[in-house]
C-alpha cells in the first residue's frame, strides 16, 4: 500500500496574482482540504491501526486459550505459518481459485458480451438474466449450488447424469475445489459480462462495417477490432475480480469448511481457522500479513498496469 502518497490537497506554491485572488485561493485550498480529510483520515486509521496491531501480534506468542504468555518470539510465528502444511495448500488453492475464475470469467465474459452485442429478440431480458447471479449473496449461491444443484442424490446435476445413464458425481467429495471454482465463477462471470457488455456499446460500428466491406471475416474483426477495444475493460475486470477473489471466504465457509483435509482451504480460510477456531492469534496474524504481502504484490502489478489508465479517463 502506498502510504507515502497520503498527503493531500496542499498546493506547493500559491499562485501569483493580486492579494484577493491569493486569499481566495488559500480559502479554496482550505475548503478542499477540509472536505477531503474526513474520508482520508477514516481510511488511514482503518489501514494503519489494525495493520500495526497485526504486525505486533505476529511477533509475540499470543493464544487466546493460554492468556498471559505473550512473550516476544521474533519471526517464530512466520516460520510456523510458512512451514505449516496448511500454508502450501492454502497458497496453491488461492492461486487456483483466483487464476481459474479469472480465466473463466474473462473468456466467457468476452464471448457472451460479443454474443449479445447484435440485436435479437428479447435482448433486454437476456441481459438481465445474464447479470443476475452477481446480485445473489455469496452464502445463498453457495448453498443453492451445494444443496439444490450439486447434491449427489437429489441435485439437478445428479438427475442429468442419471438421465444419460452415468453415475452421479459427489462433487464436494471428489472435486471439491473445482466445485467451488464453479460456484465462484457463476457469481463473477456476470460481473465480467456486465462490464464488457457496456464497453461493447462504445465500439465504433463504422470501423467494423468498413472492415467488413474490406472483406474481413467475423474472426478477423473480433481479433483486430473488438478485442483491442476491450483490452482496457478486461484489465479492469481482472483487477477488480482479483481484489475480491483473493479473499473468497463465504463460499468455502458454507460449503466445505475448507475440507476435505486442506483441499478447499484458501489463505483467507486458513487464517480464519487459525484465529477463530484455534485461537492462535500470533500465527493467524503472521498469516494475515503474508496475505497482505501477497495481495500487495498483486495490487502493485495490477495498479501499475491499469492505474494510469484509470485516472487518465476519470
Amino acid at each position: 500500500m502506498s502510504i507515502s502518497t497520503v498527503q493531500d490537497g496542499v498546493p506547493a506554491v500559491p499562485a501569483p496574482g493580486p492579494e484577493t485572488v491569493k486569499a481566495d485561493k488559500r480559502l479554496h485550498s482550505r475548503v478542499g482540504l477540509l472536505t477531503v480529510s474526513p474520508s482520508v483520515l477514516a481510511l488511514l486509521v482503518w489501514m494503519i491501526v489494525p495493520l500495526a496491531m497485526t504486525i505486533y501480534f505476529s511477533l509475540i506468542r499470543y493464544n487466546l486459550l493460554y492468556p498471559g504468555e505473550n512473550e516476544f518470539v521474533g519471526l517464530e510465528n512466520y516460520y510456523f505459518f510458512l512451514t505449516d502444511e496448511g500454508f502450501v495448500h492454502g497458497a496453491l488453492n488461492t492461486l487456483w481459485l483466483v487464476g481459474a475464475t479469472l480465466l473463466i470469467s474473462v473468456v466467457a465474459g468476452v464471448l457472451i458480451a460479443v454474443l449479445v452485442d447484435t440485436p435479437f429478440w428479447g435482448r433486454g431480458i437476456v441481459r438481465v438474466l445474464l447479470i443476475s447471479p452477481f446480485f445473489i449473496m455469496p452464502t445463498v449461491s453457495a448453498l443453492v449450488w451445494k444443496n439444490l444443484l450439486l447434491h449427489p442424490v437429489s441435485g439437478v446435476f445428479a438427475a442429468v447424469w442419471n438421465f444419460f445413464g452415468a453415475t452421479p458425481v459427489d462433487w464436494f467429495a471428489e472435486y471439491p475445489l473445482q466445485a467451488i471454482i464453479l460456484i465462484v465463477s457463476w457469481q463473477w462471470v456476470p460481473f465480467a459480462v456486465l462490464l464488457l457488455m457496456t464497453a461493447m456499446q462504445s465500439l465504433d460500428q463504422e470501423q467494423k462495417e468498413a472492415a467488413r466491406l474490406d472483406g474481413a471475416g467475423p474472426i478477423a474483426i473480433f481479433w483486430h477490432i473488438t478485442l483491442p477495444h476491450l483490452t482496457r475493460p478486461i484489465a479492469v475486470v481482472v483487477m477488480i475480480e482479483t481484489i475480491f477473489l483473493l479473499s473468497i471466504f463465504a463460499e468455502i465457509f458454507t460449503t466445505t469448511g475448507g475440507g476435505p483435509g486442506y483441499e478447499t482451504t484458501n489463505l483467507a480460510y486458513l487464517i480464519y481457522s487459525q484465529a477463530l477456531l484455534q485461537f492462535d492469534v500470533g500465527m493467524a496474524s503472521a498469516g494475515g500479513l503474508v496475505a497482505v504481502v501477497i495481495a500487495n504484490i498483486a495490487a502493485f502489478i495490477l495498479i501499475r498496469m491499469i492505474g494510469k489508465n484509470l485516472t487518465e479517463k476519470a
Binding site: M1, S2, I3, T5, V6, S39, V40, L43, W46, M47, V49, P50, L51, M53, T54, F57, I243, L246, S247, F249, L267, A268, I271, Y272, A275, L276, V281, A284, S285, G287, G288, L289, A291, V292, A295, N296, A298, A299, I303, G307, L310, T311
Partner: peptide
C-alpha cells in the same frame, strides 16, 4: 489511487485485530 489501494488490503489481514 491510494484509496483504491486500501481495497487491496485483504480482510483476513486485519481480521484478528
Amino acid at each position: 489511487l491510494w484509496m483504491l489501494s486500501t481495497k487491496m488490503l485483504p480482510p483476513v489481514g486485519v481480521l484478528v485485530p
